[in-house]
């Protein structure tokens, strides 16, 4: 499995979802290989996959960006990411991006049958994430609400 080859699916899904759900233009950077661990900007949405692939999709941003996205989605201002609506909004955006990308990947490779876990969100200070023995492919993207980063780690699953 060559994850580099599939990163455009995740980039495209992110650009589309930000445009359609949030009316935000996204400009994408280059795909980079970050190794086993990466530092979070303070707010990370994560969706796992099982099936033909086993791994995770991460949508990472600063807490300020998460607050801005929530304001756009819900139409109300929130002061802190400790408010449940902020976590739920982030989870929803991450869920839709990963759902779109994985649907396209499944359609392009019949039999792969990747299925997604529900999204989880972690926010905090000095946060870092590790996936033992798996290398994260990441792309930094710029939006009007701030910098976002998508990371994907995956290995072949049992199907």
């Amino acid at each position: 499995m060559n994850l580099n080859q599939h990163m455009p699916m995740f980039i495209k899904a992110t650009v589309n979802v930000f445009k359609e759900m949030l009316d935000l233009k996204v400009s994408s950077g280059q795909v980079e290989n970050e190794g086993e661990g990466f530092l979070s900007q303070g707010f990370t949405v994560m969706v796992g996959f099982c099936g033909g692939w086993r791994g995770w999709f991460f949508l990472d941003m600063s807490q300020a960006t998460a607050l801005k996205l929530t304001e756009i989605l819900i139409g109300e201002q929130y002061q802190t990411v400790a408010e449940e609506e902020v976590l739920l909004s982030g989870a929803e955006v991450g869920n839709i991006i990963s759902g779109n990308a994985i649907t396209n990947i499944n359609n392009s490779q019949p039999g792969l049958n990747i299925r997604l876990t529900p999204p989880s969100v972690f926010a905090g200070e000095d946060m870092s994430l590790f996936n033992v023995r798996l290398s994260a492919h990441s792309v930094i993207m710029q939006t009007e609400a701030g910098t976002i980063k998508i990371n994907v780690v995956a290995e072949e699953g049992k199907g």
């Binding site: 996959f49 086993r54 590790f130 798996l134 780690v153």
Partner: peptide
């Protein structure tokens, strides 16, 4: 049930929402 690989999250003053349920 199938399981994903583990992800370890290390940080301070953390807030989490797991599975939305």
């Amino acid at each position: 049930t199938n399981i994903t690989p583990p992800t370890l999250i290390h940080g301070q003053k953390m807030i989490s929402l797991i599975s939305q349920v």
